[in-house]
Amino acid sequence: MKEPVIVQLTDVRKSYGRQEVLKGINLSIVEGKTTVIIGASGQGKSQIIKHILGLVKPDSGRVVVYGKEINKVSKRELKEIRTHFGVLFQNAALFDSMTVYDNVALPLRERTKKPEAEINRIVNEKLALMDIEESNDKYPAQLSGGMRKRVGLARALVLDPKIIFFDEPTTGLDVAKSNEIYRVFSRTQAKLGYTSVIVSHDVPKIFKLADYVALLHNGVIQGCLTPEEFQLSDDPVIREFVETTMGPLYSSEMEV
């Protein structure tokens, strides 16, 4: 990997009670690329994102973001680092007592001193990018799952962040809606050029978006490889995962 690494996790461990969820995570996120973290449900994939975001402190190990150890920086520095982040939570985490418009406008109103007219322009632009400009006045509870994710994505993108985290962006969506979300990803990433970290178990579809794939298995990352390397890996754990989730078709010579 020649590109600059902007997030580095070194031997990160985390336990909840007696259950050790992360057993020494080592992972590098490369600038401008899409890293996908895959693995079975309940393995702690979202926990990795929460550690990078500084929402959860590891029991041991280091999480370095933009050269700063996120658990040791001051509150002000943490806030500064987070200005580069955009996050799409698993359930979109929209503010349910605000309209779609206000949800997307919130980061602009709270974090910038832009006049309302400009906020209006930016919000409408982002909503148009997601094809949801007609839902301006609706509340999150009135939206479908897919639309909620798109509003969450519009909100995550509204401050033009450098790195965006997507926590299970297509969970609970049907095939057509998932494809729609993936199209929005590729379109916005091509346009805005952000680094993205995606947690997903939508294999193999997610491989089309990925530059690097990391498999979380038994609390440990099993290699951070390109999708092609991943599918051809000799590592027994990766091999088993590939065969279980994608079947023999993807590991056949025809597919290669």
């Binding site: 996050v87 698993q90 980061p107």
Partner: peptide, 12 residues
């Protein structure tokens, strides 16, 4: 519902 986490992640 992770709304407070979302605020923190937006540096609010």
């Amino acid at each position: 519902s992770e709304q407070i986490d979302a605020l923190e992640c937006m540096a609010i």
